[in-house]
Amino acid sequence: MRRACRVSIGYPEARRAKIRRMSCEAEYFSKGFDWEELRAEIEANPSFRYHLLPYEPSSFAREAEADVDAWEQFHTRHSSGKFFKERRYLVKEFPELLSCGENAVLEVGCGNGSTALPILRANKDAIVYACDCSSKSLNRAQEVIGSATIGSFEDRFHTFCCDVCTNGFPPWLACNSCRNKFLQKQSNCVSESKEGNEPCFTNTCSREGYDGCIGGVDFITLIFTLSAVPLERMSRSINECFAVLKPGGMVFFRDYGLYDMTMLRFEQAKRVGFREYKRSDGTRSYFFCLDTVRDLFVGAGFTELELDYCCVKSLNRQQGKSMRRVWVHGKFKKPTLV
C-alpha cells in the first residue's frame, strides 16, 4: 500500500504543496499491490473467464490502413489536447533522458507530444525526433510544443509521419549525415511513400541492414504505442527500433499490462485476438505480460536491463471506487558489439 504523503508543519502553503507533489510523484509508481495476487483473483473469477480463452483469428486479413484511419479520427476528436496529460514521470522512471546531452531521442508514436514535451523541458540539449502514423497528431504535437515555454524548440523537435509496423523507419534515421540532410530538406520528404517511392537520401543510405550508415539514434521511447499495433506486426516494429539504434543505445518501454483495469472492462465482443481488443472507435489495444515483452525485445537482439509490472492503486473520488492499474515498465539495450 502507498504511504500517505507527509507534509511538514510550518512551511508556507506553496512550499507544502510542492513537497506534497514531489512526495506523491516519488511514490506514485511504487508497488501499490501485488500483481500475482491480482492475477489469482482475476483467473478465479468466472465473470472474467472469457479474457483467458484461446482466440481463433478471423479469416479476413487485417488492413493496416484501417488502423491508421482509426487513429486519424481519434486525434481529430481529441484535437484540443485536453484528453492527454504531460507524462512528467518519464524522466523519473528513465533518468538517462536527463543526462543524454545532445544525443538524439526517437519518440515512436508521439501522439500530441505528451512524451516529448517533458523530455524537452527537462533536458535543454536533447534533440527529439517524433513520428506517428497520424498526420493530425503530428500537427497537434507541433502546436503543443510550439506553445510551451521551453525556449527554442525549433532546433530540437522534429516530426515525421511513419507507420513503423507497416513501412518501417526511413533509412535516413539510422545515419547521422542523412539526418542532417533531413533537417535541411524536411519539407520535401519525411518518410517512405505507401506507393513504393524511393525514400529520402537513398543514395547515401542502404535500406538492407543500413550497411552504409554511420550513427543512429541514442534512445528510443515506446510509450503506450506498441499495444496499438496488431500482435503479428509487433516484431517488425521492434526489429526496426533495433536497426536505427546506435550500439549501446537503449529503448524505454511502458505500456498496458495484463489484467489492467481497462482490459477487464472490455466486453467479450471486443476481443480481436488473445489479450487483444478493439474499441468502438476502431483503435486497438493489447495487454502485455512480461514474457511477451521479453520475447519481442530479446528476439530482436536487445539485452534486458529492467522489466517489471508497475501496479498502481488509485481512487476515483467521484465514484468512490478503487482502481487497479497495471503497466509494464521495461528498459532494453542494444549490445555494443552486434
Rank of each mutant, 00 (worst) to 15 (best):
F332I: 03
A17H: 07
C133W: 06
L264W: 01
G10D: 13
V68P: 02
S30Y: 04
T115I: 15
S114P: 04
D163K: 04
D255W: 02
W71R: 03
T303L: 14
A26C: 10
L53N: 09
N103V: 02
P199V: 08
F169M: 14
F224I: 04
C110Q: 04
I223Y: 04
P230N: 02
T336V: 14
Y129G: 00
E306K: 05
E25C: 06
V7Y: 03
L183K: 05
L38N: 04
M1I: 09
A174I: 02
K333N: 08
Q186H: 10
F74G: 00
A104N: 03
P95E: 02
M263T: 01
Q142S: 12
F83C: 06
V326T: 09
A228D: 11
R140A: 02
K270E: 14
G216F: 00
S193F: 06
K92Y: 14
H51F: 03
Y259N: 05
K31R: 13
S47F: 09
C110S: 12
F332W: 01
S193P: 04
L245T: 03
D163P: 03
N176D: 15
E56I: 10
F182G: 00
A148F: 11
L258W: 08
H329E: 15
A17E: 13
Q318G: 11
C5E: 04
D69R: 05
E96K: 07
N176L: 05
E232F: 07
F219G: 04
C100N: 08
G249R: 01
P118I: 12
S134H: 12
R77W: 13
S58D: 14
S191C: 13
F182W: 07
E96T: 07
K278V: 01
C311M: 14
K181A: 15
S147G: 12
I42C: 01
E102Y: 05
G32T: 08
F288D: 05
I119S: 13
Y11N: 14
F94W: 12
E13F: 10
